[in-house]
């Protein structure tokens, strides 16, 4: 089961089994990785957290552990990248389509996007993973980068 996502994820930007207890906490952990790795500006984390409050990114997958894809405007991005976090206990994100609905989220794909025409492949790869229940189940139990590679190829 390979969605090609592994080639797009910086191994340093993968956090497995995080203890984060709020959406802001996991966003800041992952944004910190992207900032350290040179993908985003120091303004990125605040911008994503702020945006999540008004335009949320939780995706309802009819699971106990849904997915969120936080991101923000391109001016905070230096180069395209994706960070991924899995959570020990789901945290709450609001539903993208219906912000009044709260979703338990177990997987966060933090997107740094600055050119839609060049990042279609990356977006498609993230979506393919989200839509693959076996991949999500594999990621939930992944404890090492090799485990993640085995799932995402």
């Amino acid at each position: 089961m390979s969605d090609g996502l592994m080639q797009l994820l910086d191994p340093e930007a993968i956090v497995l089994g995080s203890d984060a207890s709020t959406n802001e906490e996991i966003i800041r952990i992952l944004a910190g990785r992207l900032e350290t790795l040179g993908y985003v500006k120091s303004t990125y984390a605040d911008a994503v957290v702020r945006r999540e409050m008004t335009i949320p990114t939780g995706l309802p997958l009819e699971r106990a552990d849904n997915v969120a894809v936080p991101h923000t405007d391109p001016e905070h991005v230096l180069k395209p990248g994706i960070a991924m976090g899995t959570l020990k206990q789901p945290v709450t994100f609001a539903n993208m389509e219906d912000p009044d609905e709260k979703l338990p989220v177990g997987f966060v794909f933090l997107l740094a996007i600055n050119d839609k025409d060049k990042q279609i492949e990356a977006l498609q790869s993230v979506m393919a993973t989200i839509q693959n229940p076996n991949a999500l189940d594999g990621l939930r139990s992944a404890r090492t980068l090799d485990d993640v590679r085995a799932v995402l190829g």
């Binding site: 894809v69 391109p74 997107l111 839609k116 977006l123």
Partner: peptide
């Protein structure tokens, strides 16, 4: 979509 470049791109392509 929220930013006009992320999820709307994925939906457009699909």
């Amino acid at each position: 979509c929220g930013t006009g470049i992320a999820t709307s791109t994925a939906v457009n392509v699909a």
